[in-house]
Design a binder for these strands. Structure first.
Lengths: 213, 213
DNA sequence: TAGATTGTTAATCGATTAACAATC
DNA sequence: TAGATTGTTAATCGATTAACAATC
């Protein structure tokens, strides 16, 4: 890590800021400055927190003026490693995995989106060799070799719950350092691997709490 | 809300606990007791926090003994409103929406899963009347009427970013109190409506932060 | 009874907000 | 210069952990 001990809460907001800046450069290319107030309003964060978040990484603004949009954009992309192509794999090309794969691949038309889905894996013999928008589906046994040869850095896991830990172990041993998990199960990873859970069922269940009786 | 001021952080962990209990009753039906230690280990939460979370809602355990699994399961289901059927709609039956719809519908075979996808909406004339595993796709214009007639309580939003706020407004005006949003945009909702964001792109971007240079 | 484990209080830790001097 | 807005420190708020009396 290039900056020490930045909290997860801070990192989670950076892509939000970047998205707002990207929207502005598209919709209003003439606009060159933005205040923490405006950036906060557009991303749902308080102005004070916007300034504090950005200040962890440097002095990007000018007092009395605000932040230069293009400059801040570049800085945020650099901080998030999005100023280079990041290659990601996906394991489990079922209903959900297939849709996520196509969704990711469709987003790559976007100039700003530098996360590239470069490999698909599945355990089903029938699927091996099949093609999803130009990316071929391979056996899970090939995962370690492909992580190396394709230089994959992240893995999306959309296998059934009972298979997820095994797939994660395989990925971690192959050198993967960031995993996005959609399987409805609690996974163990070493401390140096980042795991993000995106279990839709869990989200719906917690939302149900807020419904009336 | 039936309990006052329970924090979001607490609510977020309850479905985790419930999932662990459901797994245990399936895999080892003879087991009848569980300690906060064990429940914590299985859900990735410290034992002290497990006890504190549960204590907000009542005294569910016995000192020196632990928690009775079946009883705790029932209590958690009740707290989460999962002891009744909760009906949910989905707007935007594109690639991702279609997959999520089928995924949700497939999960309803599960006895414990009481969240029922009961309506689909799309703006595309071509899709109206089409059927996804038994649920028909309707025009978005019909959303308010269907929310009433079908008693929908939650809405899953999988429309493009530029259409999301409008769909959310329509849903909120129709009485929806909980929204799961997959569109990559910041949405405004009234204070009494719960909004959960599940933007895959944002998750991948924040994970990219943790990759080396 | 002795051992185990809860429910709860106090201590700690961390994140957000408020406030303002610096300065463009 | 006067007004605006940053970067930063101090104050506040909230969540987690530690510790232990209560008690099964």
């Amino acid at each position: 890590m290039r900056w020490n001990k930045i909290s997860d809460a801070v990192v989670r907001r950076l892509p939000l800021y970047l998205r707002v800046l990207d929207e502005i450069t598209t919709e209003d290319p003439h606009k060159s400055l933005i205040s923490s107030q405006e950036l906060g309003d557009s991303s749902g964060v308080s102005p004070a927190l916007v300034r504090k978040d950005l200040a962890w990484f440097g002095e990007f603004g000018k007092q009395g003026v605000g932040y230069e949009i293009g400059y801040l954009q570049n800085e945020l992309r650099h901080i998030l490693n999005l100023d280079r192509t990041v290659k990601v794999g996906l394991v489990g090309v079922g209903q959900l995995g297939h849709a996520l794969a196509r969704y990711q691949l469709s987003r790559m038309k976007d100039v700003h989106f530098r996360i590239m889905l470069a490999a698909l894996f599945d355990s089903d013999v029938e699927k091996w060799g099949q093609d999803v928008d130009g990316v071929v589906i391979r056996p899970i046994a090939e995962l370690p070799a492909v992580v190396q040869s394709e230089q994959l850095e992240m893995m999306i896991v959309t296998v059934p719950a009972h298979a997820a830990q095994e797939v994660v172990n395989l990925s971690v041993n192959a050198g993967i350092k960031a995993i996005l998990n959609f399987a409805p199960t609690n996974l163990e990873v070493p401390a140096d691997v980042r795991l993000a859970n995106a279990d839709v069922t869990l989200e719906l269940q917690r939302l149900a709490y807020y419904l009336g009786v």
